[in-house]
């Protein structure tokens, strides 16, 4: 029979946090290195999901009664959906004007 301590030792908060950190770093790598604008947006989605994973892990392990982290996650998902809709529309508009999705070509505001 497991006691309470053993249960926590088996599925720890740290695993989830490490997983989220790895996902966040992969997202950062993709955000900076990719040249396709759509892939940049996909990397931003990865970042938001890493943050969500953190929130969910905290809400499950540190705040299981109120689960405010889950409410936050729902709002973050909403913002991510709105961001994806507008971001992809911006990419479509840029593509129509410049005829490319290469991030290196979007340099009108560069000095």
């Amino acid at each position: 029979m497991y006691d309470f301590e053993d249960k926590f030792r088996n599925m720890q908060l740290q695993y989830f946090l490490l997983l989220a950190a790895a996902l966040f770093c992969i997202g950062i790598y993709g955000l900076i290195t990719s040249r396709n604008a759509v892939r940049v947006l996909m990397s931003i989605e990865l970042l938001l999901n890493a943050v969500n994973l953190n929130l969910m892990a905290f809400s499950s392990y540190l705040d299981p009664l109120e689960i405010k982290g889950q409410v936050f996650t729902v709002f973050v998902i909403t913002v991510a959906a709105a961001e994806a809709a507008v971001g992809l529309a911006i990419i479509l508009a840029i593509y129509r004007n410049r005829d490319t999705v290469d991030m290196e070509q979007f340099n009108l505001l560069k000095w």
Partner: peptide, 12 residues
């Protein structure tokens, strides 16, 4: 976890 990290690496 393995599925997630592997697919995320694939995405990037």
């Amino acid at each position: 976890a393995v599925m997630m990290i592997g697919s995320a690496l694939g995405v990037v």
